[in-house]
Design a protein around this nucleic acid. Structure first.
Length: 114
DNA sequence: GTGGTGACTGCCA
DNA sequence: ATGGCAGCCACCA
């Protein structure tokens, strides 16, 4: 394999993010069994080369899109993809985590209660 | 094996 | 409210 089990675990968690919802790096890290190590998630996604993984649903703690080193059109593409999935963006370009933050435990029980 | 860096987060000023 | 510094783990040279 090209990736370690840690990466694979991270990808697995990211793949479990439901459509129309987003998760923070820290959250994914915690679910992946690496609490407090959001950097690894970001780094794992940076090394990610698989379109099967919805990496676009992973945002930073502020609900903004973290763009990669050097900067690229990935940011715009990510936003478009999320909007296409039903994720709303605030005027300031942020995502209301209160509404779209993924709740693994809730499992879509109370998230839709706007 | 060692050193530096990174798509982050949280606390302090 | 914003800005800056330190820390964690894994990958690359």
């Amino acid at each position: 394999m090209s990736v370690s089990e840690t990466y694979r675990d991270i990808y697995r968690v990211v793949s479990q993010i439901p459509r129309g919802r987003v998760a923070t790096y820290g959250q994914v890290a915690r679910l992946a069994g690496r609490p407090g190590q959001a950097r690894l998630v970001g780094y794992a996604l940076s090394a990610l080369n698989d379109r099967s993984v919805p990496w676009q649903r992973v945002v930073n703690a502020r609900g903004e899109i973290s763009l990669r080193s050097g900067g690229s059109q990935g940011e715009c593409e990510q936003r478009l993809r999320l909007e296409s999935e039903g994720v709303e963006f605030a005027p300031d370009g942020r995502i209301p985590l209160e509404r779209h933050l993924w709740r693994p435990d809730g499992d879509g029980v109370r998230q839709q209660t706007l």
